[in-house]
Simulated scan of single mutants.
Amino acid sequence: MRGSVDGVLFDVDDTLIDTRAAFTVAWEVAVGQFLPALGPGDVDAVVRSWRADVDGYYAAYTQGRMSYTEQRWRRVNAVHAEHGGPALDEAEFHAWNTVYEEAFQGAWAAFDDALAAMDALRSAGVAVGIVTNARSDYQRAKLERAGLDVPEVLVGVDRFGVGKPDPRIFLAGAEGLGTDPARTAYVGDELEVDALGAIRAGLRGLWLDRPGTRRHEIPDSTVTAAMTSGVVPLPSLTHLAPTLLNPPAR
């Protein structure tokens, strides 16, 4: 892969933006108001449930089978059910969502390695863009609030009504950059949706596997198979430019 890319497309959440930390801040507020039987020590378990989304509600949204509002409503009620909270009716959900979203947006922040990674690629003449499984306007606001330069190419789930791993969204990103998919890399934190999805679409797939941040357990055999398929794992974005740009040792 090294020295063979003209463009790099980034995921946003838990790749450039520390969304897990923002979830934690938002759920600290939501637990205090809507799950009073729980204490501060329970927030991490609630966040793990939220991120795991075992019922696949967010995936249903990215597949065009559910609206954004419906998936969030169902998802919060699933978390409440798991942790002994009440089911929220429509009015209660909207009250919850107002509280949660205000705290969530207030906690948006970039990872320390995000800006430098993007700048290193741009300085080397590599085109940079975004492909994300959220609405483009929402992600643009997130990047701006986090202090990151928003690339001109930003393809969201609203482009086709579906998101990753649908090949169209990856290919739209490469088309926006004006780069051959085979010479375009995609980097994201989800092995299946991001890295393998990119490879199946004809791009290069890099899996950002920050220590301790996986949404769920991934067997070693699955990781090995993914690497055999061409996935390149990275422990941080600090390793991205050297991996892509440095020529191999001879």
Rank of each mutant, 00 (worst) to 15 (best):
Asp42Leu: 05
Arg200Lys: 12
Ala225Pro: 05
Ile130His: 11
Ala21Ile: 03
Ala45Pro: 04
Gly161Cys: 08
Gly161Asn: 11
Ile169Cys: 03
Ser229Trp: 10
Pro151Lys: 13
Gly178Glu: 09
Val47Thr: 07
Arg215Gln: 12
Ala103Ser: 13
Thr24Cys: 02
Asp119Ile: 09
Val99Cys: 14
Asp53Arg: 00
Phe160Lys: 01
Val150Asn: 01
Tyr58Gly: 00
Ser67Lys: 02
Ala127Cys: 04
Ala59Ile: 06
Val99Gln: 10
Trp73Ile: 00
Leu171Asn: 10
Met1Tyr: 14
Ala52Trp: 07
Ala226Glu: 02
Asp149Glu: 15
Lys142Thr: 03
Leu240Tyr: 09
Pro242Phe: 08
Asn97Thr: 02
Tyr68Ala: 13
Ala60Pro: 01
Gly147Asp: 05
Val76Ile: 15
Pro219Gly: 07
Glu217Asp: 15
Gly176Pro: 07
Val153Tyr: 00
Thr213Phe: 04
Leu38Tyr: 11
Tyr58Lys: 00
Gln71Thr: 00
Lys142Glu: 10
Asp189Pro: 03
Val12Ile: 14
Leu38Glu: 11
Ala201Gly: 10
Leu115Ser: 15
Phe104Ile: 02
Gln105Ala: 14
Arg140Leu: 06
Ile218Ala: 01
Asp11Met: 06
Ala95Trp: 00
Gly41Ile: 02
Val54Leu: 13
Arg122Asn: 06
Glu101Ile: 11
Asp6Arg: 14
Thr15Lys: 06
Val8Lys: 02
Thr238Val: 09
Arg204Ser: 12
Tyr186Gln: 08
Gly230Pro: 01
Glu152His: 14
Gly205Pro: 06
Asp220Ile: 09
Tyr58Phe: 08
Glu70Trp: 02
Gly125Thr: 06
Met1Phe: 13
Arg183Lys: 11
Pro86Gly: 00
Val43Phe: 05
Leu191Lys: 08
Asp55Thr: 03
Tyr68Phe: 14
Ala172Glu: 14
Gly32Ala: 11
Asp11Gln: 07
Ala30Ser: 14
Gln63Met: 09
Asp158Val: 08
Ile218Trp: 04
Val153Cys: 09
Leu196Val: 13
Val150Cys: 06
Arg145Lys: 14
Leu237Thr: 06
Gly176Asn: 08
Val231Pro: 10
Ala174Val: 05
Glu90His: 12
Leu177Trp: 06
Pro242Ile: 12
Ser221Gly: 09
Tyr57Val: 02
Ala114Gly: 07
Ala124Gly: 12
Gly32Phe: 02
Thr238Pro: 05
Gly163Phe: 00
Tyr186Pro: 06
Trp96Asp: 02
Ile169Lys: 01
Thr62Lys: 01
Arg159Ala: 13
Ala103Gly: 10
Met227Gly: 03
Arg210Ala: 04
Pro248Met: 11
Thr98Val: 13
Leu38Val: 10
Glu190Lys: 12
His216Gly: 07
Ala52Tyr: 11
Pro211Gln: 08
Leu234Val: 10
Asn77Pro: 04
Ala95Asn: 01
Thr222Val: 15
Leu171Cys: 07
Gly41Leu: 10
Val5Arg: 11
Glu102Tyr: 05
Arg250Lys: 11
Ala60Val: 06
Val31Met: 08
Pro181Tyr: 12
Asp209Leu: 10
Trp27Ala: 03
Met118Gly: 01
Arg75Lys: 14
Leu245Glu: 03
Val131Cys: 06
